[in-house]
């Protein structure tokens, strides 16, 4: 009640429904719920471009003539796509975290004489911890969030790599031959002819990935980041009068309905934006959509 926004919130038990609701929906706990919507949007804002970057790198590697690079690209696509997301999120994040701590440990504490693995425990010296044990809570949370972004980027990057690889193969061969005939180097051909034309083939696949990514954010809680689904569950659970000023029965259905509306609205907006991008990318392309545009104008 300390941070109540409305002055009448000091004794919620006496309030009418409307006032009670306005107090209830502005508790600190609900503020955290609203903030978590921002967390999810922020995650998408970071994860989507990084995944695209991973995808682009993966697709380029998979097309490379240099064999080890080629294997790396293909291996990345095959392995990450094959492992279930949940397993990847649990295993990879702990492995990444412990790997970083291990490296820091080797650099910062060369005189350490105890084993790092003691039975079940993973022990590195205090100053090698990531983040440091005495860091503020927000640093721990930011670190967890960064791990989440990296993990999402790697997982969705593998799918994006396959989409982009297919799109690069789909660009008509005549375009490449013409570029070569004009004397463009392979590098120039790739960046000036292939890449600008492949997006129109990649977009349907990429937009699918984006839609799946939007709905994959509840995986965040596996990494300790409190997302909207966590809060909906926590807030919606029944509360008795002993421990809250706002007792209520099981309201999870209502909270999840609110999430449903959020997700539907968000995917709808995405759809509109993606449709616009599709139209723009089809412009002047030697595809059916491009041809249709040419005829109408």
């Amino acid at each position: 009640m300390r941070s109540a926004i409305f002055s009448f919130c000091s004794d919620p038990a006496t309030l009418e429904t409307f006032q009670w609701m306005s107090c209830y929906l502005t508790t600190g706990k609900h503020m955290a719920f609203y903030v978590s919507f921002g967390t999810v949007l922020l995650l998408l804002a970071f994860a989507a471009p990084s995944a695209l970057l991973f995808g682009f790198g993966g697709a380029m590697a998979a097309r490379a003539r240099f064999l080890p690079l080629n294997w790396l690209g293909r291996g990345y696509i095959a392995i990450v796509r094959g492992v279930p997301d949940i397993a990847f999120f649990l295993f990879f994040v702990i492995a990444l975290d412990q790997g970083l701590e291990y490296l820091r440990h080797k650099v910062k504490c060369p005189d350490w004489d105890q084993p790092i693995r003691q039975g079940n425990d993973f022990i590195v010296c205090d100053i090698a911890k990531l983040p440091l044990g005495n860091s503020a809570q927000w640093i721990h949370e930011t670190y967890g969030f960064a791990l989440a972004v990296v993990t999402f980027a790697i997982v969705f990057g593998a799918f994006a790599a396959n989409v982009l690889y297919g799109a690069m193969q789909a660009v008509p061969h005549a375009q490449i031959e013409t570029a070569e005939a004009y004397g463009l180097t392979p590098r120039q051909t790739f960046w000036r002819i292939l890449v600008p034309q492949m997006w129109t083939y990649a977009l349907p696949g990429l937009s699918n990935l984006w839609m799946v990514l939007i709905k994959a954010t509840p995986l965040l809680f596996l990494l300790g980041v409190e997302d909207i689904v966590y809060w909906a569950k926590e807030l919606g659970g029944s509360k008795t009068a002993n421990f809250t000023a706002y007792p209520h029965p099981d309201w999870r259905t209502q909270y999840f309905l609110a999430l449903l509306v959020f997700y539907l609205a968000f995917t709808k907006v995405s759809e509109v934006v993606l449709n616009r991008i599709t139209t723009r990318l089809s412009h002047g392309q030697a595809t059916l959509a491009g041809e249709a545009q040419r005829k109408t104008t």
């Binding site: 508790t27 600190g28 706990k29 926590e234 421990f243 809250t244 000023a245 706002y246």
Partner: peptide, 12 residues
């Protein structure tokens, strides 16, 4: 999530 032992209060 286990009152009265530990739970999140109205302020979170």
């Amino acid at each position: 999530a286990y009152p009265p032992y530990n739970f999140l209060n109205d302020n979170g």
